[in-house]
Amino acid sequence: MAELQKLHDAIMSGDTKTAVAVTREALAENVDPMELIRQYMIPAMDEVGRLFQCEEYFVPELLLAARAMKGSLELIRPLLAASGRQPTGRVVIGTVKGDLHDIGKNIVASMLEGGGFDVIDLGADVAPERFVEAIQRSNANLVCLSALLTVTMPSMRTTIEALKQAGVRERVKVLVGGAPVTRQFAQQIGADGYSESAPGAVTLARQIIAAL
């Protein structure tokens, strides 16, 4: 019989191989996939997030845990889809046009994936129309915009305007972040949320999805 606590511990320690093996064994034994997620996987990621917030963990520990979580979720997702249950949320993410910096965006994308979101990563220097296309194609409910340069902050506003003009703004919530971005700026450009850290972005994304 699968030792389910090992799934929790494997995610905590970023051990993808064990996490996947335990998940596979549990599913073969007809353990409810939602039980795996709710009782073992999400508590493990919550604990990892807590350890990161209190500076016990660094990003490598965080991302390795997210990778282990993602490995297990890949086995579970088809079963949830077959039973009509949806993933946590679907996110389109990218660094806005004119900006080539993407490491912060990559951290957020990886953590969202580890948090159970479907993530469509458009990369860096993403034109507004590419965000629009991705939303239309994927039926996403969240859009995350990143910028590191002050001169590319206006591209965030342009992107939100493009979503409005394309008629998709009401379908998605928009989160923004990046070194020069402030809460005040987020409000000014009509974003729905702002976070100054990657774990904060995931928490905010979860709150927004829960409220939908």
Binding site: T150, V151, M153, P154, S155, T158, P180
Partner: peptide, 8 residues
């Protein structure tokens, strides 16, 4: 030196 927030 660099520009303030302005689209190039």
């Amino acid at each position: 030196f660099t520009l303030p927030a302005i689209t190039v």
